[in-house]
Nucleic acid binder design. Sequence first.
RNA 1: GCAGGGGUGGUCGAGUGGUUAAUGGCACCGGGCUGUAAACCCGGCGGGUUCACACCCUACGUAGGUUCGAAUCCUACCCCCUGCA
Length: 398
Amino acid sequence: MNKRAIGFEVVASEGEARAGVLTTRRGRVETPVFMPVGTLGTVKGTRFEALEAADTDARIILGNTYHLWLRPGAEVISACGGLHRFTGWERALLTDSGGFQVWSLGALRKITEEGTRFRSHVDGRLCFLSPEVSMQVQAALGSEIVMAFDECAPGDAPHDAARESMLLTARWALRSRREFDRLQREEADAGRVGESHLPEGSNLSGAQALFGIAQGAGHSDLRRESLSRTVEIGFDGYAIGGLSVGEEKGVMYRVVEELAPQMPRESPRYLMGVGTPEDLIECVARGVDMFDCVLPTRNGRTGQAFTARGKLNIKNARWARDARPLDERCACQVCRRHSRAYLRHLFTAGEMLGSILLTHHNLAFFLDTMRRVRQAIRSGDFTRFRREFTEGLVSGVA
RNA sequence: GCAGGGGUGGUCGAGUGGUUAAUGGCACCGGGCUGUAAACCCGGCGGGUUCACACCCUACGUAGGUUCGAAUCCUACCCCCUGCA
């Protein structure tokens, strides 16, 4: 009775930090969790085997509505049985709604009450994305977690503009909710999981889950209002959007610190698009359960490694003869096998393996960091962990 | 040997009397990247002093010369390429 799309249970907490278990129709996800970004049906620069390997063990990754809608198109993916079967990724997926592209594609779009008119960045043709279309595409993708279609204001948006944007997001949230429910009733969800294949004892419905998003830029009152409007509609989880989009350093921590404790305790809290290793720790400490960010993959691809002692630019000449691994305390496949000198050589030679290996290390570092965060919270040791981790980051790569 | 063509900064290659320390490309060096229009983007790149503006020195095969001024014109020499013997 009363089956839900996802389950969420907090198993330990320390201050605002929480350790929990998110149960999806495609597996359990321990939180706090970092979700690698797989915009176009691929986590760039890595293979699913590598994402599933013991040193990474990603349980959930992202996909993007806007990008997959443009190419290959929702029809292609639903014809192939949804995004899981299309890509071969059998674990959980969260799809972003395309709301972020409304912001990041800037000049290529025009926003109206009805939705957003885009110039496709692929071929220039005019496209129209609305809450309804976004829900339809995400149903065709068949992800475990669907994001509401929102509008992300610039990080430094003044109060009136931010309020207008936030209210539009609230209206779009309601429309997202209604269209999502209609699509679930009509069984449009391409990723639906039969009862016999659901995680044992999970008591799930096998349907998709829908998350709402709070906006409001850096304005505390707008953030509060946005959250209460979102909670009023009712979602399976709640996200904080519109951070790390150009706002002043420190605004993000303040907004998260004020907002997360007000979010429903029984639901997962997702901070969208964040962040650096330090951001992850600091926002876990403020009550966030879920994160995603392109940093480990993008920066890995472009030559920057994240380590326990801070960032390392593998292209620098100083590593040319360095036989040590990227991070001497890292147990990932790359650090167990390859030297900085070799990785630098691959980058200077323009060999794609360099990007692949740094991407893997970065993902392993992020995911392992989150594993350690969960252990620390469960053992009541998070405060010390946080302090030591932060000290390590600023100590500098030798 | 004769006749043409050519020798430019790490490299390839523009420039044929005056904002020329010298366009570009590559190489090299450094920086950036936060719900991915990104295997990408930006900057530096003769040496020295200076926080900086700026200043000084050395540079277009070698050595001379013409000129207010030369990588650019003239002379000699050295070297390379092509063709003919």
